[in-house]
C-alpha cells in the first residue's frame, strides 16, 4: 500500500524565528497591514510504502524524530492519506 504523508515542521513557539520576524516587519512594503506575527517552517511531502496505516505512521514518526525535525528546536505535525493507485 502507498501512503502520502504531509508533514509540517515548525520552530518551537518559545524560540525567536528571525525569518518570520523579518517577513512580518516587511509586510508594510507589500501594502499588507495588520500582520501581527509570522512564523516560518517547512512542509515535507513523503510517499511511503507500508503494509497498513499503523506501519506507515511508525515510519513517518521515526523519520521525523530522527531526521526531519530536531525536537530541541522544532515541533512537527502530519496527516496521512492512502494513495489511490
Amino acid at each position: 500500500m502507498k501512503y502520502i504523508a504531509e508533514i509540517d515542521v515548525m520552530p518551537r513557539e518559545e524560540l525567536l524565528d528571525p525569518q518570520g520576524k523579518t517577513v512580518a516587519l516587511n509586510m508594510k512594503h507589500v501594502g499588507v497591514a495588520g500582520v501581527a506575527d509570522v512564523r516560518i517552517g517547512k512542509h515535507i511531502r513523503m510517499v511511503i510504502e507500508a503494509a497498513d496505516e499503523s506501519e506507515a505512521r511508525q515510519k513517518v514518526e521515526t523519520a521525523c524524530d530522527k531526521l526531519l525535525a530536531n525536537v530541541i528546536m522544532e515541533t512537527y505535525t502530519y496527516t496521512l492519506q492512502l494513495l489511490d493507485e
Binding site: L15, L16, P18, Q19, K21, T22, N70, I72, M73
Partner: peptide, 16 residues
C-alpha cells in the same frame, strides 16, 4: 549537536 554528542543546538543567527 545533531548527533547528540553535545547538548543543545545551533539556531539561525538572531539577525538572519
Amino acid at each position: 549537536c545533531e548527533a547528540g554528542l553535545l547538548p543543545g543546538i545551533l539556531l539561525p543567527n538572531e539577525q538572519q
